[in-house]
Design a protein around this nucleic acid. Structure first.
Lengths: 213, 213
DNA sequence: TACCTCCTAATCAACTTTGACTAGGGTACG
DNA sequence: CGTACCCTAGTCAAAGTTGATTAGGAGGTA
Protein backbone atom coordinates (compact mmCIF):
# COMPACT_ATOMS: atom_id res chain seq x y z
CA UNK A 1 0.00 0.00 0.00
CA UNK A 2 1.31 3.37 -0.98
CA UNK A 3 0.35 6.49 0.92
CA UNK A 4 -0.64 8.55 -2.08
CA UNK A 5 -4.29 7.54 -2.31
CA UNK A 6 -4.92 8.10 1.35
CA UNK A 7 -3.22 11.48 1.23
CA UNK A 8 -5.10 12.61 -1.87
CA UNK A 9 -8.48 11.37 -0.69
CA UNK A 10 -7.91 12.97 2.71
CA UNK A 11 -6.90 16.27 1.18
CA UNK A 12 -9.84 16.42 -1.21
CA UNK A 13 -12.17 15.39 1.58
CA UNK A 14 -11.08 18.22 3.89
CA UNK A 15 -11.86 20.73 1.18
CA UNK A 16 -15.11 19.10 0.14
CA UNK A 17 -14.11 19.89 -3.41
CA UNK A 18 -10.62 20.54 -4.69
CA UNK A 19 -8.53 20.66 -7.82
CA UNK A 20 -5.15 19.06 -8.26
CA UNK A 21 -3.08 22.08 -7.49
CA UNK A 22 -4.93 22.63 -4.25
CA UNK A 23 -4.23 19.06 -3.18
CA UNK A 24 -0.63 19.48 -4.18
CA UNK A 25 -0.41 22.60 -2.05
CA UNK A 26 -1.96 20.96 0.97
CA UNK A 27 0.43 18.07 0.77
CA UNK A 28 3.33 20.46 0.52
CA UNK A 29 1.96 22.35 3.51
CA UNK A 30 2.00 19.07 5.41
CA UNK A 31 5.54 18.45 4.25
CA UNK A 32 4.30 15.29 2.56
CA UNK A 33 6.54 15.76 -0.45
CA UNK A 34 9.42 15.22 1.96
CA UNK A 35 8.35 11.95 3.48
CA UNK A 36 6.05 10.39 0.89
CA UNK A 37 5.70 9.99 -2.85
CA UNK A 38 3.36 12.98 -3.06
CA UNK A 39 4.92 14.49 -6.16
CA UNK A 40 2.91 16.30 -8.85
CA UNK A 41 2.89 13.38 -11.23
CA UNK A 42 1.72 10.97 -8.58
CA UNK A 43 -0.98 13.30 -7.31
CA UNK A 44 -2.52 13.98 -10.71
CA UNK A 45 -2.25 10.34 -11.62
CA UNK A 46 -3.98 9.29 -8.42
CA UNK A 47 -6.76 11.82 -8.98
CA UNK A 48 -7.43 10.61 -12.50
CA UNK A 49 -7.20 6.97 -11.56
CA UNK A 50 -9.54 7.33 -8.64
CA UNK A 51 -11.96 9.33 -10.78
CA UNK A 52 -11.90 6.51 -13.31
CA UNK A 53 -12.63 4.03 -10.54
CA UNK A 54 -15.55 6.04 -9.26
CA UNK A 55 -13.96 7.08 -5.97
CA UNK A 56 -13.91 10.71 -7.03
CA UNK A 57 -16.30 12.70 -9.14
CA UNK A 58 -14.60 15.06 -11.60
CA UNK A 59 -16.08 18.47 -12.40
CA UNK A 60 -14.66 20.06 -15.52
CA UNK A 61 -14.13 23.70 -14.73
CA UNK A 62 -13.48 26.75 -16.90
CA UNK A 63 -9.94 28.13 -17.03
CA UNK A 64 -8.71 29.12 -13.62
CA UNK A 65 -8.96 32.56 -12.10
CA UNK A 66 -5.20 32.92 -12.06
CA UNK A 67 -3.68 31.79 -15.31
CA UNK A 68 -2.63 28.32 -16.20
CA UNK A 69 -4.49 25.51 -17.94
CA UNK A 70 -8.12 24.68 -17.24
CA UNK A 71 -8.47 22.71 -14.09
CA UNK A 72 -10.66 19.92 -12.87
CA UNK A 73 -12.27 19.86 -9.47
CA UNK A 74 -12.78 16.61 -7.61
CA UNK A 75 -15.19 15.55 -4.95
CA UNK A 76 -15.41 12.28 -3.01
CA UNK A 77 -18.20 9.97 -4.03
CA UNK A 78 -19.83 7.68 -1.50
CA UNK A 79 -17.54 4.84 -2.45
CA UNK A 80 -14.63 7.28 -2.25
CA UNK A 81 -15.58 8.01 1.31
CA UNK A 82 -15.78 4.32 2.10
CA UNK A 83 -12.39 3.77 0.47
CA UNK A 84 -10.91 6.66 2.43
CA UNK A 85 -11.85 5.16 5.76
CA UNK A 86 -10.76 1.74 4.63
CA UNK A 87 -7.32 3.06 3.69
CA UNK A 88 -7.11 5.06 6.89
CA UNK A 89 -7.89 2.04 9.05
CA UNK A 90 -5.39 -0.06 7.16
CA UNK A 91 -2.69 2.60 7.49
CA UNK A 92 -3.14 2.65 11.26
CA UNK A 93 -3.27 -1.09 11.83
CA UNK A 94 -0.91 -2.55 9.27
CA UNK A 95 2.43 -2.82 10.98
CA UNK A 96 4.68 -2.62 7.97
CA UNK A 97 7.55 -0.28 8.50
CA UNK A 98 6.73 2.29 5.90
CA UNK A 99 6.89 5.65 7.58
CA UNK A 100 4.84 7.38 4.93
CA UNK A 101 1.75 5.24 5.34
CA UNK A 102 1.70 5.48 9.12
CA UNK A 103 2.47 9.20 9.03
CA UNK A 104 -0.46 9.78 6.72
CA UNK A 105 -2.65 7.66 8.96
CA UNK A 106 -1.71 9.68 12.03
CA UNK A 107 -2.38 12.85 10.08
CA UNK A 108 -5.96 11.79 9.49
CA UNK A 109 -6.56 9.82 12.67
CA UNK A 110 -8.87 12.46 14.07
CA UNK A 111 -11.35 11.72 11.27
CA UNK A 112 -12.22 8.59 13.26
CA UNK A 113 -13.87 8.63 16.62
CA UNK A 114 -11.70 8.30 19.68
CA UNK A 115 -12.83 4.82 20.57
CA UNK A 116 -12.08 3.38 17.15
CA UNK A 117 -8.71 5.12 16.94
CA UNK A 118 -7.62 3.44 20.14
CA UNK A 119 -8.97 0.12 18.96
CA UNK A 120 -7.03 0.29 15.70
CA UNK A 121 -3.82 1.23 17.47
CA UNK A 122 -4.23 -1.70 19.84
CA UNK A 123 -4.62 -3.90 16.80
CA UNK A 124 -1.38 -2.43 15.53
CA UNK A 125 0.41 -3.33 18.74
CA UNK A 126 -0.94 -6.87 18.55
CA UNK A 127 0.35 -7.20 15.00
CA UNK A 128 3.78 -5.94 15.97
CA UNK A 129 3.99 -8.37 18.88
CA UNK A 130 3.00 -11.26 16.66
CA UNK A 131 5.56 -10.28 14.09
CA UNK A 132 8.23 -10.00 16.75
CA UNK A 133 7.59 -13.46 18.08
CA UNK A 134 7.50 -14.98 14.62
CA UNK A 135 10.89 -13.46 13.86
CA UNK A 136 12.48 -14.54 17.12
CA UNK A 137 11.26 -18.08 16.56
CA UNK A 138 12.72 -18.05 13.10
CA UNK A 139 16.15 -16.82 14.00
CA UNK A 140 16.92 -19.13 16.88
CA UNK A 141 17.35 -22.46 15.14
CA UNK A 142 18.61 -25.47 17.07
CA UNK A 143 22.22 -24.77 16.16
CA UNK A 144 22.10 -21.44 17.98
CA UNK A 145 22.03 -17.92 16.60
CA UNK A 146 25.57 -18.10 15.28
CA UNK A 147 24.47 -20.48 12.56
CA UNK A 148 22.90 -17.53 10.80
CA UNK A 149 26.09 -15.48 10.81
CA UNK A 150 25.64 -11.82 10.11
CA UNK A 151 22.20 -12.61 8.69
CA UNK A 152 21.00 -12.78 12.26
CA UNK A 153 21.58 -9.04 12.44
CA UNK A 154 18.76 -8.52 10.00
CA UNK A 155 16.36 -10.30 12.32
CA UNK A 156 17.83 -8.41 15.24
CA UNK A 157 17.08 -5.19 13.42
CA UNK A 158 13.51 -6.25 12.78
CA UNK A 159 12.98 -7.11 16.42
CA UNK A 160 14.32 -3.72 17.43
CA UNK A 161 12.01 -2.02 14.96
CA UNK A 162 9.02 -3.96 16.17
CA UNK A 163 9.76 -3.11 19.79
CA UNK A 164 10.29 0.56 19.06
CA UNK A 165 7.11 0.71 17.00
CA UNK A 166 5.06 -1.02 19.66
CA UNK A 167 6.41 1.21 22.39
CA UNK A 168 5.61 4.36 20.48
CA UNK A 169 2.12 3.10 19.65
CA UNK A 170 1.42 2.34 23.30
CA UNK A 171 2.42 5.87 24.21
CA UNK A 172 0.07 7.28 21.62
CA UNK A 173 -2.79 5.10 22.85
CA UNK A 174 -2.25 6.40 26.35
CA UNK A 175 -2.26 10.02 25.27
CA UNK A 176 -5.43 9.53 23.28
CA UNK A 177 -7.14 7.77 26.16
CA UNK A 178 -6.12 10.62 28.43
CA UNK A 179 -8.13 12.97 26.25
CA UNK A 180 -5.53 14.43 23.91
CA UNK A 181 -6.61 15.95 20.59
CA UNK A 182 -10.06 16.48 19.14
CA UNK A 183 -11.63 13.54 17.34
CA UNK A 184 -14.63 13.23 15.04
CA UNK A 185 -17.82 14.45 16.65
CA UNK A 186 -16.01 16.20 19.49
CA UNK A 187 -16.39 19.77 18.31
CA UNK A 188 -14.21 22.10 16.31
CA UNK A 189 -11.71 19.94 14.41
CA UNK A 190 -8.06 20.77 14.03
CA UNK A 191 -7.53 22.83 10.88
CA UNK A 192 -5.14 21.07 8.57
CA UNK A 193 -5.66 22.75 5.25
CA UNK A 194 -4.94 26.14 3.84
CA UNK A 195 -7.95 28.32 3.18
CA UNK A 196 -8.14 29.71 -0.32
CA UNK A 197 -5.58 32.50 -0.52
CA UNK A 198 -3.94 31.80 2.83
CA UNK A 199 -0.18 31.72 2.59
CA UNK A 200 1.83 28.64 3.47
CA UNK A 201 4.20 29.34 6.36
CA UNK A 202 6.10 26.11 5.75
CA UNK A 203 6.31 26.33 1.98
CA UNK A 204 10.09 26.13 1.86
CA UNK A 205 11.29 25.94 5.47
CA UNK A 206 10.76 22.24 6.01
CA UNK A 207 14.02 20.76 7.24
CA UNK A 208 15.32 17.70 5.54
CA UNK A 209 18.65 16.01 5.08
CA UNK A 210 18.77 12.98 2.85
CA UNK A 211 16.11 10.57 1.73
CA UNK A 212 13.24 10.04 4.12
CA UNK A 213 10.73 8.51 1.75
CA UNK B 1 16.42 3.85 -3.81
CA UNK B 2 14.77 0.49 -4.11
CA UNK B 3 16.42 -2.65 -2.81
CA UNK B 4 15.94 -4.74 -5.91
CA UNK B 5 19.09 -3.77 -7.77
CA UNK B 6 21.29 -4.31 -4.77
CA UNK B 7 19.68 -7.67 -4.10
CA UNK B 8 19.96 -8.83 -7.69
CA UNK B 9 23.54 -7.66 -8.15
CA UNK B 10 24.52 -9.22 -4.85
CA UNK B 11 22.90 -12.53 -5.74
CA UNK B 12 24.47 -12.73 -9.18
CA UNK B 13 27.80 -11.72 -7.74
CA UNK B 14 27.83 -14.52 -5.16
CA UNK B 15 27.27 -17.06 -7.91
CA UNK B 16 29.73 -15.49 -10.31
CA UNK B 17 27.25 -16.29 -13.02
CA UNK B 18 23.54 -16.87 -12.60
CA UNK B 19 20.27 -16.98 -14.48
CA UNK B 20 17.07 -15.31 -13.40
CA UNK B 21 15.51 -18.30 -11.74
CA UNK B 22 18.61 -18.87 -9.66
CA UNK B 23 18.51 -15.29 -8.42
CA UNK B 24 14.84 -15.64 -7.72
CA UNK B 25 15.55 -18.76 -5.68
CA UNK B 26 18.33 -17.15 -3.68
CA UNK B 27 16.14 -14.22 -2.82
CA UNK B 28 13.40 -16.57 -1.72
CA UNK B 29 15.97 -18.46 0.34
CA UNK B 30 16.83 -15.20 2.05
CA UNK B 31 13.14 -14.52 2.60
CA UNK B 32 13.54 -11.38 0.49
CA UNK B 33 10.18 -11.82 -1.20
CA UNK B 34 8.70 -11.24 2.25
CA UNK B 35 10.36 -7.96 3.09
CA UNK B 36 11.29 -6.45 -0.26
CA UNK B 37 9.93 -6.05 -3.77
CA UNK B 38 11.87 -9.08 -4.98
CA UNK B 39 9.06 -10.55 -7.06
CA UNK B 40 9.63 -12.42 -10.34
CA UNK B 41 8.63 -9.49 -12.52
CA UNK B 42 10.91 -7.10 -10.67
CA UNK B 43 13.85 -9.50 -10.72
CA UNK B 44 13.71 -10.22 -14.44
CA UNK B 45 13.12 -6.58 -15.18
CA UNK B 46 16.10 -5.54 -13.09
CA UNK B 47 18.32 -8.11 -14.81
CA UNK B 48 17.34 -6.92 -18.28
CA UNK B 49 17.61 -3.27 -17.38
CA UNK B 50 21.02 -3.64 -15.80
CA UNK B 51 22.19 -5.70 -18.76
CA UNK B 52 21.06 -2.88 -21.04
CA UNK B 53 22.97 -0.41 -18.89
CA UNK B 54 26.13 -2.46 -19.02
CA UNK B 55 26.15 -3.47 -15.36
CA UNK B 56 25.59 -7.09 -16.26
CA UNK B 57 26.76 -9.16 -19.18
CA UNK B 58 24.11 -11.50 -20.61
CA UNK B 59 25.02 -14.94 -21.97
CA UNK B 60 22.33 -16.50 -24.11
CA UNK B 61 22.12 -20.15 -23.13
CA UNK B 62 20.49 -23.18 -24.75
CA UNK B 63 17.23 -24.51 -23.25
CA UNK B 64 17.63 -25.45 -19.63
CA UNK B 65 18.45 -28.89 -18.30
CA UNK B 66 15.13 -29.19 -16.54
CA UNK B 67 12.29 -28.09 -18.79
CA UNK B 68 11.02 -24.58 -19.17
CA UNK B 69 11.99 -21.83 -21.59
CA UNK B 70 15.58 -21.06 -22.61
CA UNK B 71 17.37 -19.08 -19.98
CA UNK B 72 19.91 -16.30 -19.92
CA UNK B 73 22.89 -16.24 -17.62
CA UNK B 74 24.24 -13.01 -16.23
CA UNK B 75 27.60 -11.95 -14.91
CA UNK B 76 28.69 -8.67 -13.30
CA UNK B 77 30.76 -6.41 -15.49
CA UNK B 78 33.37 -4.11 -13.96
CA UNK B 79 30.94 -1.23 -13.82
CA UNK B 80 28.40 -3.63 -12.34
CA UNK B 81 30.83 -4.35 -9.55
CA UNK B 82 31.38 -0.66 -8.97
CA UNK B 83 27.63 -0.08 -8.93
CA UNK B 84 27.16 -2.94 -6.48
CA UNK B 85 29.49 -1.43 -3.93
CA UNK B 86 28.04 2.00 -4.49
CA UNK B 87 24.53 0.71 -3.79
CA UNK B 88 25.76 -1.27 -0.81
CA UNK B 89 27.44 1.76 0.75
CA UNK B 90 24.36 3.87 0.15
CA UNK B 91 22.09 1.23 1.67
CA UNK B 92 24.15 1.20 4.85
CA UNK B 93 24.54 4.95 5.29
CA UNK B 94 21.28 6.41 4.03
CA UNK B 95 19.08 6.70 7.06
CA UNK B 96 15.70 6.53 5.42
CA UNK B 97 13.39 4.18 7.17
CA UNK B 98 12.96 1.61 4.48
CA UNK B 99 13.54 -1.73 6.06
CA UNK B 100 14.17 -3.51 2.78
CA UNK B 101 17.14 -1.39 1.77
CA UNK B 102 18.85 -1.61 5.12
CA UNK B 103 18.10 -5.31 5.41
CA UNK B 104 19.69 -5.94 2.03
CA UNK B 105 22.67 -3.82 3.04
CA UNK B 106 23.18 -5.83 6.22
CA UNK B 107 22.90 -9.01 4.23
CA UNK B 108 25.84 -7.97 2.09
CA UNK B 109 27.80 -5.97 4.65
CA UNK B 110 30.48 -8.65 4.89
CA UNK B 111 31.47 -7.92 1.28
CA UNK B 112 33.14 -4.81 2.65
CA UNK B 113 36.11 -4.82 4.92
CA UNK B 114 35.52 -4.46 8.62
CA UNK B 115 36.95 -0.97 8.90
CA UNK B 116 34.76 0.43 6.16
CA UNK B 117 31.65 -1.27 7.48
CA UNK B 118 32.10 0.44 10.82
CA UNK B 119 32.78 3.75 9.13
CA UNK B 120 29.60 3.55 7.08
CA UNK B 121 27.52 2.66 10.10
CA UNK B 122 28.94 5.60 12.02
CA UNK B 123 27.95 7.77 9.11
CA UNK B 124 24.47 6.33 9.42
CA UNK B 125 24.30 7.25 13.08
CA UNK B 126 25.43 10.78 12.30
CA UNK B 127 22.69 11.10 9.69
CA UNK B 128 20.05 9.85 12.10
CA UNK B 129 21.15 12.30 14.76
CA UNK B 130 21.04 15.17 12.32
CA UNK B 131 17.61 14.17 11.17
CA UNK B 132 16.39 13.93 14.74
CA UNK B 133 17.55 17.39 15.63
CA UNK B 134 16.09 18.89 12.47
CA UNK B 135 12.71 17.35 13.31
CA UNK B 136 12.74 18.47 16.93
CA UNK B 137 13.58 21.99 15.87
CA UNK B 138 10.71 21.96 13.43
CA UNK B 139 8.05 20.74 15.77
CA UNK B 140 8.64 23.04 18.69
CA UNK B 141 7.44 26.36 17.29
CA UNK B 142 7.17 29.37 19.57
CA UNK B 143 3.53 28.68 20.38
CA UNK B 144 4.44 25.35 21.96
CA UNK B 145 3.92 21.82 20.70
CA UNK B 146 0.13 22.03 21.12
CA UNK B 147 -0.12 24.39 18.17
CA UNK B 148 0.52 21.42 15.92
CA UNK B 149 -2.31 19.36 17.38
CA UNK B 150 -2.20 15.69 16.57
CA UNK B 151 0.22 16.47 13.75
CA UNK B 152 2.90 16.69 16.41
CA UNK B 153 2.48 12.94 16.85
CA UNK B 154 3.93 12.42 13.40
CA UNK B 155 7.12 14.21 14.40
CA UNK B 156 7.11 12.34 17.67
CA UNK B 157 6.98 9.10 15.73
CA UNK B 158 9.90 10.17 13.56
CA UNK B 159 11.99 11.04 16.58
CA UNK B 160 11.25 7.66 18.11
CA UNK B 161 12.22 5.94 14.87
CA UNK B 162 15.44 7.89 14.62
CA UNK B 163 16.37 7.05 18.19
CA UNK B 164 15.59 3.38 17.79
CA UNK B 165 17.52 3.22 14.53
CA UNK B 166 20.55 4.96 16.00
CA UNK B 167 20.56 2.76 19.06
CA UNK B 168 20.42 -0.41 17.02
CA UNK B 169 23.16 0.83 14.72
CA UNK B 170 25.42 1.63 17.68
CA UNK B 171 24.92 -1.90 18.93
CA UNK B 172 25.88 -3.35 15.60
CA UNK B 173 28.98 -1.17 15.40
CA UNK B 174 30.04 -2.43 18.79
CA UNK B 175 29.58 -6.08 17.86
CA UNK B 176 31.53 -5.62 14.66
CA UNK B 177 34.35 -3.85 16.45
CA UNK B 178 34.43 -6.68 18.95
CA UNK B 179 35.25 -9.04 16.11
CA UNK B 180 31.89 -10.52 15.21
CA UNK B 181 31.36 -12.07 11.76
CA UNK B 182 33.78 -12.64 8.93
CA UNK B 183 34.40 -9.71 6.60
CA UNK B 184 36.06 -9.44 3.21
CA UNK B 185 39.65 -10.68 3.23
CA UNK B 186 39.29 -12.39 6.59
CA UNK B 187 39.09 -15.98 5.41
CA UNK B 188 36.23 -18.31 4.56
CA UNK B 189 33.18 -16.15 3.96
CA UNK B 190 29.71 -16.95 5.26
CA UNK B 191 27.81 -19.01 2.71
CA UNK B 192 24.63 -17.25 1.71
CA UNK B 193 23.56 -18.96 -1.47
CA UNK B 194 22.29 -22.35 -2.42
CA UNK B 195 24.65 -24.55 -4.35
CA UNK B 196 23.22 -25.98 -7.55
CA UNK B 197 20.84 -28.74 -6.56
CA UNK B 198 20.90 -28.03 -2.83
CA UNK B 199 17.43 -27.91 -1.34
CA UNK B 200 16.07 -24.83 0.32
CA UNK B 201 15.25 -25.49 3.98
CA UNK B 202 13.31 -22.22 4.25
CA UNK B 203 11.43 -22.48 0.97
CA UNK B 204 8.00 -22.21 2.56
CA UNK B 205 8.53 -21.97 6.29
CA UNK B 206 9.31 -18.26 6.49
CA UNK B 207 6.98 -16.77 9.05
CA UNK B 208 5.02 -13.71 8.10
CA UNK B 209 1.82 -12.06 9.20
CA UNK B 210 0.70 -9.07 7.22
CA UNK B 211 2.58 -6.69 5.01
CA UNK B 212 6.22 -6.18 5.80
CA UNK B 213 7.40 -4.75 2.51
C1' DT C 1 7.49 48.77 -23.59
C1' DA C 2 10.32 44.93 -23.74
C1' DC C 3 12.27 41.57 -21.01
C1' DC C 4 12.74 38.48 -17.24
C1' DT C 5 11.16 35.85 -13.65
C1' DC C 6 7.75 33.69 -10.92
C1' DC C 7 3.27 31.43 -10.12
C1' DT C 8 -0.53 28.48 -11.51
C1' DA C 9 -1.95 24.16 -13.24
C1' DA C 10 -1.14 20.35 -15.40
C1' DT C 11 0.99 16.91 -18.88
C1' DC C 12 4.38 13.61 -20.62
C1' DA C 13 7.79 9.99 -21.50
C1' DA C 14 10.57 6.93 -19.27
C1' DC C 15 11.02 3.78 -15.88
C1' DT C 16 9.57 0.49 -12.10
C1' DT C 17 6.45 -2.58 -9.81
C1' DT C 18 2.75 -5.86 -9.51
C1' DG C 19 0.22 -10.04 -10.04
C1' DA C 20 -1.47 -12.92 -13.26
C1' DC C 21 -0.38 -15.75 -16.95
C1' DT C 22 2.21 -19.05 -20.37
C1' DA C 23 4.33 -23.22 -21.69
C1' DG C 24 6.98 -27.32 -21.49
C1' DG C 25 8.26 -31.25 -18.99
C1' DG C 26 8.16 -34.48 -14.88
C1' DT C 27 5.67 -37.24 -11.48
C1' DA C 28 2.19 -39.38 -8.49
C1' DC C 29 -1.92 -41.97 -8.65
C1' DG C 30 -6.29 -44.19 -9.46
C1' DC D 1 -2.70 -44.80 -19.42
C1' DG D 2 -4.55 -40.50 -18.79
C1' DT D 3 -4.89 -36.74 -16.04
C1' DA D 4 -4.11 -33.71 -12.42
C1' DC D 5 -0.69 -31.37 -10.34
C1' DC D 6 3.83 -29.41 -9.61
C1' DC D 7 8.38 -27.44 -11.04
C1' DT D 8 11.19 -24.64 -14.15
C1' DA D 9 11.81 -20.33 -16.39
C1' DG D 10 10.14 -16.49 -17.90
C1' DT D 11 6.64 -12.97 -20.23
C1' DC D 12 3.09 -9.51 -20.20
C1' DA D 13 -0.38 -5.86 -19.47
C1' DA D 14 -1.80 -2.71 -16.22
C1' DA D 15 -0.74 0.30 -12.71
C1' DG D 16 2.20 3.37 -10.21
C1' DT D 17 6.21 6.63 -9.83
C1' DT D 18 9.59 10.09 -11.24
C1' DG D 19 11.52 14.26 -12.91
C1' DA D 20 11.37 17.20 -16.57
C1' DT D 21 8.65 20.09 -19.28
C1' DT D 22 4.82 23.03 -21.06
C1' DA D 23 2.10 27.16 -21.36
C1' DG D 24 -0.37 31.13 -20.07
C1' DG D 25 -0.71 35.08 -17.24
C1' DA D 26 1.03 38.44 -13.48
C1' DG D 27 4.32 41.39 -11.63
C1' DG D 28 8.67 43.82 -11.43
C1' DT D 29 12.19 46.65 -13.68
C1' DA D 30 15.43 49.05 -16.73
Amino acid sequence: MSAIRLLVLGAVRQHGRAHGYQVRNDLEFWGAHEWSNAKPGSIYHALKQMAKQGLLHAHEIAPSTAGGPPRTEYELTDSGNVEYFSLLREALTSYDQKMDVLSAGIGFIVDLDRREAVELLRERVRGLEEWRSSVTEYYTPEEGPESLGHIGEIMNFWVHSADAGAQWTRGLIERIEDGAYTFAGEGEPFVGVLAEGQENPYATGVPHEGDLS
